[in-house]
Design a binder for these strands. Sequence first.
DNA 1: TTTTTTTACGACACACGTAACAATG
DNA 2: CATTGTTACGTGTGTCGTAAAAAAA
Lengths: 88, 88
Amino acid sequence: MDVKDLRYFVAVYETKGFSNASKSLRTVQSNVSTRIRYLEDFLGTPLFERRYRVVVPTQKGEELYVHAKQLIATLDHTERAIRFPQAA
Amino acid sequence: MDVKDLRYFVAVYETKGFSNASKSLRTVQSNVSTRIRYLEDFLGTPLFERRYRVVVPTQKGEELYVHAKQLIATLDHTERAIRFPQAA
DNA sequence: TTTTTTTACGACACACGTAACAATG
DNA sequence: CATTGTTACGTGTGTCGTAAAAAAA
């Protein structure tokens, strides 16, 4: 499981749509669609229900979101801590 | 920062060598070398001192190890939790 | 028809293994 | 010389954006 895919996933979750997510991710819809589909295949479960004008997380989607959000935050924090050692 | 690179890093740290790490990572030395070098460039600091027959982590290397280890564990755990939902 | 997601595809970049080189003792 | 890390390089794989199709109301 790739962290980049988790970033895609989180963006879709938070913006409630593939189209919206693609903007914040600075890529195009089609790539978001492809990666989310890949992630769903990999995890063996759907993560979102595609409805008209809105995307709704499944149970597994909700579960993944909590972990993904935390994981990304930790990764980014670690990265910054090493790259920009502030203070002692 | 890519998680795969962190896995490479952890393997080098734990096996105390690029050659040893490459075996457990099922790849070749050269790739480990390249990725660690990339990681060092990206983070803007050396992570290991290359000595004869052994590799020693720098201060930053030690710091990164703690976080990397934790992060990988969390990622793997999350992945398993979604893929193989055991019990209720 | 409008809005959104999916599929197909071509071009470019990256990852991997092979092989040759460098360095250390 | 033996061992370990580095650099160079070709091939395959993946990623990205474009474009066309499908679905939903």
